[in-house]
Design a protein around this nucleic acid. Structure first.
Ligand SMILES: [Mn+2]
Ligand SMILES: [Mn+2]
Ligand SMILES: [Mn+2]
Ligand SMILES: [Mn+2]
Lengths: 218, 218
DNA sequence: ATTATCTTTTAGGTATACCAAAATTAATAA
DNA sequence: TTATTAATTTTGGTATACCTAAAAGATAAT
């Protein structure tokens, strides 16, 4: 199996299971990797052979410790590059993901550690995702989704779970950037639309968008 | 044909023909690409189809203008990355080639132009090779090989044509780095060994090594 | 429990990028 | 010019990474 293929599978399995903390099913992988379910079955069989995952037929897949280790190192590379592109090279948070998708496959520990050092060994990338350290350790936080926030609560925007340029540009337009202060004014019972104050301006956020915004209670 | 494959072929054809300025034969390509002659034949047929090269059976291959344009852009990326790794990220001139071999395939003009700007749009990479500008234009120089230098001549080291870590470390050991001043003390008639003074120290250079060192008459 | 639906796997197939060995073509030496 | 040698191409084959369509398995609804 090509190294890049292995890495894309493992990273995707990691990203899907770190949210749910449960096994990943083929359909999710087929979606994220944009390949057919049939191809996913084949791929997982090979990754199982390589001992990167435990793949149980018709049930689901989880990473072995070797697989998790490799996945964490890809995630680290991806997030370090995103941060470097944003902080050192002047790219917007809506541009960095696509480029990092390629850069993440360049395997040179000295390079990544050097970039990390230049950035002051950051803990979070431009989307608020935690950056594993060189040993694969991640600082875990108790952030919540904006969709779980309560009326009259005061929050700080800590991250996003959708990295699409369209969504990020939309947020930026309303000054909903990392670190922004958010006061929940009201939640519409009918459709869970959230009305909040950010930078003194009132913004209305759909329930779907609120699912993709990560905040911390202030 | 995979983009990376196309790029590696074209870059290699460019590098082989820019020295000779003549057609490239299959064997040279097989060597540089480290694949069999049979595979080279197949590859060239496809590149011909794609109109990146003119491949004449059993004779040789040269780049079309479309091929040259693409080749120049890979060479630009490669050399900009080498320079960035050396100047901004603290890598040695013996380390950068290998990493740039991967980085050169990341296709994002804004990224390369940004790196170039940070470096002050350099004309030469850490090995003294010219960097094509964003339009593919190369500043050409009248450098010569050290093997063509004359006794009692005074030269400045401008580049190397072998990028292997072993060779570069050997040069560095004798302070033969880019910009170094070289006085030719003598040339052994028997085997063309060159005795020169660099940084006040006498160094003996084999004819083979002298072929790989590029100098300019001072 | 049976059917209907949704998910996963199997079967059979394509395209890419390589290879070794044999056949052909070109270059060189006798 | 005719061997001999060297370079190139053809032939037949492998491995990877995908695919579609059909079959099998799992889940949910009646
Ligand atoms: Mn990303
Ligand atoms: Mn990737
Ligand atoms: Mn190089
Ligand atoms: Mn390359």
């Amino acid at each position: 199996m090509r190294q890049e293929t292995v890495e894309n599978y493992l990273k995707t399995i990691y990203n899907l299971s770190s949210n749910n903390s449960t096994v990943v099913v083929n359909q999710q992988l087929a979606n994220k990797l944009e390949i057919s379910p049939a191809s996913v079955t084949e791929g997982l069989r090979k990754l199982h052979e390589l001992k990167y995952v435990v793949y149980e037929k018709s049930y689901g897949t989880r990473l072995t410790s070797a697989g998790a280790k490799l996945a964490l190192s890809i995630v680290r590379r991806h997030r370090i590059w995103e941060t470097y592109l944003a902080k050192e090279l002047g790219f917007g948070w809506d541009e960095v993901h696509e480029i990092a998708e390629e850069l993440e496959h360049i395997k040179n520990d000295k390079l990544i550690n050097k970039l990390s050092a230049i950035l002051g060994n950051p803990m979070f990338d431009p989307h608020g995702d935690p950056i594993p350290d060189a040993k694969g350790k991640i600082k875990k936080s108790n952030f919540i989704k904006l969709s779980e926030a309560k009326v009259k609560g005061n929050y700080s925007l800590m991250g996003v779970t959708d990295h699409s340029a369209a969504f990020l540009k939309y947020l930026e337009k309303h000054q909903l950037i990392i670190g922004a202060n958010i006061d929940i004014k009201g939640i519409e019972e009918f459709d869970n639309t959230i009305v909040l104050i950010c930078n003194k301006k009132e913004v209305t956020i759909s329930a779907k968008a609120a699912e993709c915004i990560i905040v911390e209670t202030v």
